[in-house]
């Protein structure tokens, strides 16, 4: 499995670049206190709305906080939201999809609920869920996870149903292999590749949704710097000091782009049909 991923990386340079950029940002997020030169919460009233210079690399905001330090700390929120949502959404989707794929009466009920959830545009669903539980990182993670789970569930269910029709599963069933063993030994390993690809897309969607939620004021509370709320706060002074909006925007776009290229590369590597088509 790991060798397969490494091989895929060698063949798809874009994916390797995406992975490298993502790794760099993950490191920056972890080492934020070492990298950020100034306390992200430090208010310097005399240095309000400074343009980028040697001291303030990304300039300062309207109350004189260092935009570079805030952006570095913002990476923590994005990384955390991306990772946690990707893990929980993939895991919940896997469990629900396996249940739906193997137990008929569960399938009927579960997939109708998923249809209903998918009929609500995911940002709106997330907005509604955050509105109920109050703006905090925890409720954002839960909200985005709920919005992303239906797609994963549907993917897993489709794959399970396709796999169940295959001869090797039929053979295992005939040989008297129990359902849990079939799941563990035959179904789940075959799901890993598509789930890994899906995880990268869920990660990208989560980072994007968090930024949008924080931007419209239904996200990370202002005490914690996140790219979305830095941009949101910079909005009011955009014409005076566009750097407050532009730098976090650039970093945010680069992160989502890296994850998307990584996901596309993994998809191409796992699915020979796509190779050379992009």
């Amino acid at each position: 499995m790991n060798a397969g991923v490494a091989q895929a990386m060698r063949r798809h340079r874009g994916a390797a670049v995406g992975a490298a950029l993502l790794a760099a940002m993950a490191l920056a997020a972890i080492a934020a206190p070492l990298i950020a030169p100034i306390d992200p919460q430090l208010i310097a009233p005399f240095d309000r709305l400074q343009d980028p210079d040697a001291r303030y690399w990304f300039g300062t905001d309207q109350i004189g906080r260092d935009v570079f330090s805030r952006t570095v700390y913002g990476a923590r929120v994005s990384m955390m939201v991306g990772c946690v949502v990707a893990l929980t959404a993939i895991f919940s989707g896997l469990v629900l999809g396996l249940l739906a794929g193997f137990i008929r009466w569960v399938d009927g009920i579960l997939m109708r609920v998923m249809d209903g959830l998918m009929a609500i545009p995911s940002i709106l669903l997330a907005i509604a869920l955050v509105a109920i539980s109050g703006p905090s990182i925890r409720s954002i993670v839960i909200a985005i996870t709920i919005a992303e789970v239906p797609r994963v569930t549907r993917l897993v269910r489709g794959q399970v149903i396709a796999l169940r029709g295959q001869l090797f599963i039929e053979a295992a069933t005939t040989a008297g292999t129990s359902v849990p063993v079939i799941l563990y030994r035959h179904i789940v390993p075959n799901l890993l590749a598509p789930l890994l690809v899906q995880a990268s897309y869920v990660f990208a969607a989560a980072v994007m949704t968090e930024a949008v939620l924080s931007f419209i004021g239904a996200g990370v509370p202002p005490e914690t710097p996140s790219w979305g709320n830095i941009i949101s706060e910079g909005r009011t002074v955009f014409q005076l000091a566009p750097h407050i909006v532009l730098f976090p925007s650039l970093v945010l776009s680069v992160m989502v782009l890296s994850v998307n290229i990584l996901g596309d590369g993994l998809r191409d590597a796992f699915d020979p049909r796509f190779t050379g088509q992009r």
Binding site: F238, L252, S253, V256
Partner: peptide
């Protein structure tokens, strides 16, 4: 297309405002 998936709409909006309105 990949870029279009990755750039949030407010980011492109602000770039366009900066360019064509400011």
């Amino acid at each position: 297309a990949v870029l279009g998936f990755s750039v949030p709409v407010f980011v492109l909006s602000y770039c366009l405002i900066l360019l064509l309105a400011v």
